[in-house]
């Protein structure tokens, strides 16, 4: 609370993150690394699919600085991602959220894996059985031969 109070006193032109940081401030080389990590989860809104970490555009650079500053102040990755999502929508998240419709994109391949494994295993079993009976059941000669052979 004091932190926010001091902020308002300083009239820091910071956009509206109403909540307090939930984590610890980061600094130094760790800050560089974390900035890169979080920035690579954000999509550059003016580029064709590049992440904020990779994009050279000024918009992405601004966003990267914002990420760095928020990390330095102790905001967690979830808070930072949520902040950008509030402004830009889910579009800005490169990793689909595991909720609602977008959970499907994670679940479908897993379902396909299970389904596919079952299919492969049953197909392997089936192939071990060999080709379907070629001889027609109603061939009288074959039936007779079978009879004679079995008698012996």
């Amino acid at each position: 609370m004091i932190f926010l109070f001091v902020l308002t006193l300083l009239q820091v032109k910071v956009p509206d993150i109403a909540e307090a940081p939930k984590g610890l401030p980061v600094a130094g080389a760790m800050l560089d690394q974390r900035t890169n990590e979080v920035a690579s989860l954000l999509r550059c809104p003016v580029c064709q699919g590049l992440s904020v970490a990779d994009s050279p555009s000024t918009m992405a650079q601004d966003m990267k600085h914002q990420v760095r500053e928020l990390l330095a102040r102790g905001y967690t990755q979830e808070q930072i991602l949520a902040y950008f999502e509030r402004s830009y929508g889910q579009f800005v998240l490169l990793k689909p959220k595991f909720q609602g419709v977008s959970a499907m994109v994670w679940l479908l391949p897993i379902a396909a894996l299970i389904f596919g494994a079952i299919v492969v295993l049953s197909k392997a079993k089936q192939l071990e059985q060999g080709p379907a009976e070629a001889a027609p059941a109603d061939d009288p000669y074959l039936a007779r031969v079978r009879e004679l052979v079995e008698k012996q």
Binding site: S40, G49, Q90, F91, L94, P96, V105
Partner: peptide, 19 residues
């Protein structure tokens, strides 16, 4: 998938490198 979500819900989402 982003096209599916667009068609079904009218919202935009991204599926990027992390996925």
């Amino acid at each position: 998938f982003p096209l599916v979500v667009e068609a079904v819900k009218g919202k935009q989402m991204s599926v990027g490198r992390p996925y």
